[in-house]
Simulated scan of single mutants.
Amino acid sequence: MIVLAATPIGNLGDASARLIEALGNAEIVAAEDTRTAIHLMRALGVENRPRLIALHEHNEREKASEIVELARTSDVIVLTDAGMPAISDPGFPLVEAAAAAGVTVTSIPGPSAVLTALAVSGLPTDRFSFEGFLPRKQGDRLRVLTALADERRTMVFFESPHRLGDSLADVVTALGADRRVVVCRELTKLHEEVRRGTAAELALWAADGSRGEICIVVDGAPERVVDLAAGLAQVQSLVRDGSRLKEAAADVAEATGLSKRDLYQAALAARA
Rank of each mutant, 00 (worst) to 15 (best):
L145I: 04
E201K: 06
R180Y: 08
L202D: 06
R196V: 09
R152N: 06
V194K: 08
T154L: 01
A147D: 14
V181S: 00
E192I: 04
A169N: 09
H162A: 02
A199S: 07
L148C: 00
L148Q: 12
D166W: 12
D150E: 14
R180I: 04
V144W: 05
E159K: 07
R180H: 11
T188I: 05
D150L: 05
D178C: 12
V172T: 04
R141G: 09
M155G: 03
V156L: 07
K189N: 04
R141A: 04
H162P: 10
E151M: 09
G197L: 13
L187Y: 07
K189Y: 05
F157T: 10
L187M: 14
V183L: 05
R152A: 15
T188W: 01
R143S: 13
F158Q: 13
K189E: 02
L142G: 01
Q138D: 14
R163A: 08
G176P: 07
F158K: 08
C184V: 15
R163H: 13
E201I: 06
T173Q: 13
R163T: 05
E201F: 01
V182N: 07
L145A: 07
V172C: 01
V182G: 11
C184I: 13
H191G: 02
D178A: 13
R163D: 07
V183F: 09
L164N: 02
G139Y: 06
R152C: 09
R143A: 14
V171D: 03
R195E: 12
V183S: 10
T173K: 14
L175T: 11
V181F: 03
R143M: 13
G176T: 02
A200Q: 04
R179L: 12
R163G: 10
R185V: 12
T154N: 03
V182R: 04
D140T: 08
A200Y: 01
D150Q: 12
F157Y: 12
K189H: 06
R196Y: 11
T188Q: 02
A177K: 07
L148I: 06
F158S: 11
V183Q: 04
D178R: 14
E186Y: 01
A149I: 07
S160M: 09
T188A: 00
R136S: 15
M155Q: 14
F158L: 15
E186A: 01
T198L: 00
R141C: 10
T188H: 05
V182A: 08
V171C: 12
R152Y: 00
R153V: 12
R143E: 14
L175S: 05
L142V: 10
D178P: 11
A174I: 11
E151I: 01
A200W: 08
A169E: 02
V144H: 11
G165S: 03
G197Q: 13
A174W: 10
V171N: 00
L202W: 01
R185Y: 07
M155L: 15
R163L: 05
H191M: 06
P161E: 04
R180G: 01
E192T: 06
R141K: 09
A149L: 01
L190F: 08
L168K: 11
R195A: 08
R153G: 12
V183C: 02
T154R: 00
L190D: 02
E159Y: 08
F157R: 08
E151K: 09
G176M: 05
V144Y: 09
D170K: 00
